[in-house]
Design a protein around this nucleic acid. Structure first.
Lengths: 244, 244
DNA sequence: CGCTTCCTTGAGTAAATTCAAGACTTGTGG
DNA sequence: CCACAAGTCTTGAATTTACTCAAGGAAGCG
């Protein structure tokens, strides 16, 4: 079984309480959400939604990593988003999903039935506002990614991706823990995210390793040895180009 | 002078009345907007906003075409959006713009001071909802463009771009008028939009012309001779992949 | 008319892809 | 515990696509 329902966690103890769509909600509003939410878990590798599926639920990622992708007729695929904890899945006012959503690691979602959630948006400005903010943040991220896809070299793409992982994993409560970071995707998935082939991804990672920028503890875990060199290799200027 | 103020047009007679941020407003709400809007015009080629500028105004494009782009330190640029009539410029809740906005043709904007507009959003759900919808549409468009930038060939990119122009110019009131369409960008601008060089754009346009898909009346005007072949050349499947 | 800008076309090059082979990991069953 | 298979990753060689560099032609503007 690759989908399962999971024990209820209280919103007030939820690890994404202050970043997800519920971030601005007060206790009363949280109570309402609490009543209509369901947790669902997916195993690494299993599909969460396929393009064209009816959107019965919208959801927040509670933990794990999911990918949002498009596929062409001939099989070429492009990932258009990486969904980390607190990211939102689904679009209010649409009843079909436009993308394939796949669990890259084991994933737990906090799901709300779409219809009741849509009604909630209309009556709860705190949710509508936060959703707006999330949509606009994603739009900014998508546009930064367009620069990456259209103009960056393979090495710059990889460096930018790694740097984004560092930044986003640091935001989460992992500070002070082990200094090594998880690479939540296979080489092929990274390639699909960056508009490259898996061989190019492999070569560029090896190259960053040889240049002393990264070390790998195993294929899915690495450590950044030279953050300045990594930053330099992204092609972004020092301050700008923030992805998330 | 490349910026000028323009005579006031009544909202009720505005060509973008039913597609812009004001689309859902009733007469009363329109009245409020009417009071705080200002038209501004820009000549082709002149900058509207630079990255880092203070966002004093948000605006809708009334007519003309503007481009939204990012520039890297070394001068590489990537266009991340094409702003056609009814498109929205600016992000409520941000006081700096993240992109360069440039008038590609002569452009007229319907501008609202940002602060009063932000207050309006909070009191006028019709505007907030429409803005949300616009943001989500742009996000979908950005993600479709990511597929283009990451995975499509030069020919597919050009075909997709042309097809998008056809679709978007048909939405506007031009049906039945002249069958030839405007190419609102230079070859270099098209290249920046598609993640190509201007030479590649030129070669691919020539190739589509030689294949009988397009004819050019002059460099900025063309006619689609074989819409099926154009569609085929985009690499998208028949129904899906809608860009706007 | 001459200047500038924009566009086209050609030839050579470079970056990333494709194709191919083999190595490392992980899990399963003997 | 080992052998084997499947999946994943690395590395090399050849190829391809789009880029760079270069020259010249058309269009627009003073």
């Amino acid at each position: 079984m690759n989908v399962s329902f999971t024990a209820h966690i209280k919103c007030s103890e939820c690890p994404i309480r202050h970043r997800a769509v519920c971030a601005r909600c007060d206790d009363d509003e949280l109570q309402t959400l609490e009543a209509i939410k369901i947790y669902r878990s997916f195993e690494a590798g299993s599909p969460i939604l396929w393009r064209g599926d009816e959107l019965k639920y919208v959801a927040s990622v509670v933990n794990g990593v999911a990918t949002l992708g498009k596929t062409m007729e001939d099989g070429r695929t492009q990932m258009v988003g990486l969904l980390l904890p607190s990211d939102f899945i689904g679009r209010p006012g649409r009843n079909e999903i436009e993308f394939d959503v796949v669990a890259a690691t084991d994933v737990t979602l906090c799901c709300f039935e779409r219809r009741p959630f849509e009604r909630l948006i209309e009556t709860t400005p705190h949710i509508a506002q936060r959703l707006m903010e999330i949509a606009l943040d994603e739009l900014d991220a998508a546009r930064d990614w367009m620069l990456l896809l259209g103009r960056k070299t393979a090495r710059e793409k990889i460096a930018t991706f790694i740097e984004m992982l560092v930044r986003r994993q640091n935001i989460q409560g992992l500070d002070g823990a082990s200094p090594d970071l998880a690479l939540p995707l296979t080489r092929e998935e990274v390639a699909n995210y960056l508009g490259l082939t898996l061989e190019t991804v492999s070569r560029q990672l090896t190259s960053l390793k040889n240049d002393g920028v990264l070390t790998f503890t195993d294929r899915r875990h690495f450590e950044v040895k030279d953050i300045a060199a990594l930053q330099e290799a992204t092609g972004d200027d020092a301050d700008g180009g923030v992805i998330f």
